[in-house]
Amino acid sequence: MNTATVSGSPMELLPALGTAIMGYAVVFLGIVMLMFVIIITGKIMTARKQPAAAPAPAIEKPASAPKALPAPGSAGQVKLFDVPDKEAAMIMAIVANKMGKPLNELRFKSIKEITEEEK
């Protein structure tokens, strides 16, 4: 090779194999440890969210009572919470498209915008 500098020095096969195995193990070790940290954080966050979310269904139950009425299609049956009609129509069309089913075979109960606070 016509370079003035060659970085490093030649390496024997056995130490190279050891380095490769150790390197792969270090990557796994680091990632597995991080995975557990993220799982634990997720569990803490979910546990904190649940008590706050618990009272919500109790408030919403009376409002959902009329939903017991039969609804053959989505038209006219869906309850909208802070969602304009046009956006609701778009959301229903997208859901139907993604599920690969005609819109009249799907039943939408309600569409509600989830605010940052509710997340």
């Binding site: 060659v6 970085s7 490093g8 020095s9 030649p10 390496m11 096969l13 190279a16 194999l17 380095t19 490769a20 195995i21 390197g23 792969y24 990557v27 796994f28 680091g30 990632i31 597995v32 991080l34 995975m35 993220i38």
Partner: peptide, 26 residues
């Protein structure tokens, strides 16, 4: 996360392959 770690296999496989071809460790 495990899949992101597993997919680094090629890094260390090619490293060993490069040593076989006569490249230096670096």
């Amino acid at each position: 996360f495990l899949l992101g770690a597993a997919a680094q296999f090629g890094v260390f496989f090619a490293f060993f392959g490069a040593i076989l071809l006569g490249f230096t460790g670096n």
